[in-house]
Amino acid sequence: MKRATVAKHVTGGMKHLDSRMTTVSDTIPPAYDRSTTPPRHHAATPNMSPICSSLVSKNVTVIITTSPLRSDPDVSMLHTTLQSLSLAGLSYCRKLLIVDHFDVGEPRLRKQSGRLPQANIDNYNERINNFRSATWAEGTEVVELSEWHGFALAVKSALSLVTTPLVCIVQHDLAFRREVDTKPIVDVLLNKDHHVNYVYFKRDSQRKYDIRSNMQFGLDLGEPVQFETSEQSSSTSVPLLRLPRYFDGTHIASVKWYHSLFSGQYLNGKELGSKGDFIDTNLGIYMQRKASERKELTTLPDGSKVSQGVLDLSDEFGCWLWAGEYDPLIQHLNGRKFLGAEEIASRKKGGNAHK
């Protein structure tokens, strides 16, 4: 299999590690500036005070993956996603925008083909250039891939630039919708005594995931487990629910664990590494099917009951679902909502392939 590559102008095989972008700052990022790029649809109140913590900023790198959007060349969606990081105390962290590459050509029937018409690519490139020049994007490093990757390979490439023990993966159309203290979550992930490698935050479509998992797959996730934290944390414990599958959505995870994933074989013996793949559609489905093979309930020492398959997958992968106060915590941003009425009408009339 041909290995995915990136351009060569920067250490690690990346290009355009934007020279004008600053490194991690010790100051709070600038406030939401509506005069610069007023977002048409945002996930959180812009005047909320960010939660700041050295425990988070020193141990977490934020990776935001992006590809062509319906709203290109407008940067409002990226503005919304980036600004929402302050709600989770992630604004101080090093931030990488991973820009996937697309070639000129007619898209195949499969949506993720790595090819788009020239007009779409021009709009995409304009959005990235607009991002570079935006004052609210200062402190974010822009990394352009030299060939088409898709989500899984883009994450793998980005991990080569990460020096912190933890990473927060964020897709460009997902934003935090409420304030959440991530310090205790980071604390638990850093504790080697806890078998916690990945903590996922639910999005709109995953409300009451534990109930839906039972109804759809016959799996009982049990009750949330309270993980104790250290003195560095602002909370004495973190409630986490066993998660028998991986999701691509917003999560914080161990970098070492992530690296190990790319050396394994999962769905139908397939590795994580084919172009255009999502991790969810390989590892996620593999985990779900494997958990479903053992639906029988096991009684834990505290008297609670959990499906044996859920316990098995939790032991094998250490994936957990944040079971805090808000359900869900993550909002999906619809690209069409960032388009004006005239632009929508124009694209429909012109038969734009990437509406």
Score class of each variant (00 low, 15 high):
5 T>H: 11
15 K>Q: 10
16 H>E: 01
40 R>W: 01
40 R>G: 08
47 N>R: 14
47 N>V: 12
51 I>H: 00
59 N>G: 05
70 R>G: 11
76 S>V: 01
77 M>K: 15
78 L>S: 04
79 H>S: 04
81 T>N: 12
81 T>Y: 12
93 C>Q: 02
97 L>F: 15
100 D>L: 12
102 F>T: 00
112 Q>V: 09
114 G>N: 03
117 P>S: 03
118 Q>E: 10
122 D>E: 05
122 D>A: 12
130 N>F: 01
138 E>W: 02
138 E>R: 04
139 G>V: 08
143 V>R: 09
148 W>I: 05
149 H>K: 09
152 A>M: 09
153 L>H: 05
154 A>E: 12
155 V>N: 04
159 L>T: 08
159 L>G: 03
179 E>V: 09
180 V>R: 07
189 L>E: 02
190 L>Q: 02
192 K>P: 01
196 V>F: 10
202 K>A: 07
208 K>E: 07
208 K>A: 13
211 I>N: 14
215 M>C: 07
215 M>A: 12
217 F>Q: 09
222 G>F: 01
230 S>A: 04
230 S>K: 09
233 S>F: 06
237 S>Y: 15
238 V>P: 05
241 L>D: 04
243 L>Y: 13
246 Y>R: 07
249 G>E: 09
258 Y>G: 07
261 L>Q: 13
262 F>Q: 02
272 L>E: 05
272 L>Y: 11
275 K>F: 14
277 D>E: 11
281 T>Y: 04
281 T>W: 03
289 R>A: 12
289 R>M: 14
290 K>I: 00
294 R>L: 06
299 T>A: 08
304 S>I: 00
309 G>R: 01
312 D>A: 13
314 S>F: 10
317 F>L: 05
320 W>Q: 00
324 G>D: 01
326 Y>L: 04
326 Y>P: 00
335 G>K: 11
338 F>E: 03
